[in-house]
Simulated scan of single mutants.
Amino acid sequence: MNAKDSISQHSQWKTLAFERFMQIVKAPYGDFQAIWNLASALNDEEGFRRTVEFLSLHPLARAAIQNRLLLGAIDLQQLHSLPSETLGHAYSDHLLRNSLNPIQSQTVENDYDYLIAHLAEVHDIWHVVINADTSMAGETKLQAFVAAQLRASRFSFAMLAKNLLKAAVEDLDLAEQLMDALAEGWRMGKQAYPLFGMQWNTLWDIPLIKLQAKWNLLPDTIAG
C-alpha cells in the first residue's frame, strides 16, 4: 500500500468511527447494537496492538488471551441460591433486579474478538465488584475503570465521551455527577489489581468483600 492509499484508508476509518460515535450518542441508552457497531468501527490495528501489549504485561491477562478463556453458560438461579455475601449471589442479584441476562459470548476467531467478547461477558461482573449501578453515572464510573485498566482502549474512551456528550445535550444537571463518577472510576482502575482475564466462574462462592479487599477495590483502600 502506498502512502496515498494509506492516508485515504485512515481517513475512511476516521469517518466511519465518527459516524458510529454519533449513532450511539443518538441511540437510546443501553442500545447494545449501537455499542457493538462502535466497537467494530474502532477496531484499528495500532490501538488493538497497544491494548494487547499492555494487558499481556500481566500473566493472568496474557494466559487468558493466549487460550481465549471464556466463562461459558451462567445459571443465574443457581448463583442466586448462594449465600448473600458471595460474589455469585451479588452478581445474579444485580442482573435479576435490573431485568438483565448474562451477555452471551460472541464468535471468537482472533485476539480482537476475544478482547471484545471477554469485556462483554464480564461487564456486569465488573459493575458489581466496583460497586457501580446501572445509572448513567454508574456506567460512566465503570467505563472510566475499564479505560484505566486497559489504558489504550479507544472504545472505552469513546464510551466515556458518549456519556458526557449525552449529558451536555440531554441533561446538563448530570454533569457534576458524571464527572465525579469518571474521576472515581479512573482512580479505582489505576489502583486496583488488573482484572482482565479473571476466571470469575471459579470465584462465585467467595465473599465479595474478600475479593474487593484482595484487589484493592474497597473505598478505604483507594486514595482520595
Rank of each mutant, 00 (worst) to 15 (best):
E45V: 13
E46L: 13
E46A: 11
E46D: 12
G47M: 04
F48I: 15
L55E: 09
S56I: 03
H58E: 14
L60K: 10
L60F: 06
R62S: 11
A64Q: 03
I65T: 03
Q66R: 15
I74K: 11
D75C: 02
D75L: 03
Q77T: 11
Q77S: 14
Q78A: 14
Q78K: 14
L79S: 04
T86E: 02
L87W: 02
L87Q: 05
L87R: 07
H89Q: 07
Y91Q: 06
S92H: 01
L100R: 06
N101R: 10
I103A: 11
Q104S: 14
S105Y: 08
S105K: 12
N110Q: 05
Y112Q: 10
I116A: 05
A117W: 07
A117D: 04
L119C: 06
E121I: 07
H123T: 02
H127R: 02
H127K: 04
V129A: 05
T134C: 08
S135N: 07
G138P: 03
L142N: 02
Q143G: 04
F145L: 08
Q149T: 04
R151Q: 14
A152G: 08
R154K: 13
F155M: 13
F155A: 12
A158S: 14
N163K: 03
N163L: 13
V169G: 08
V169C: 13
D171R: 14
D173I: 01
D173N: 15
D173H: 14
D173C: 11
A175P: 00
L182M: 10
A183D: 12
A183C: 11
E184K: 01
W186H: 10
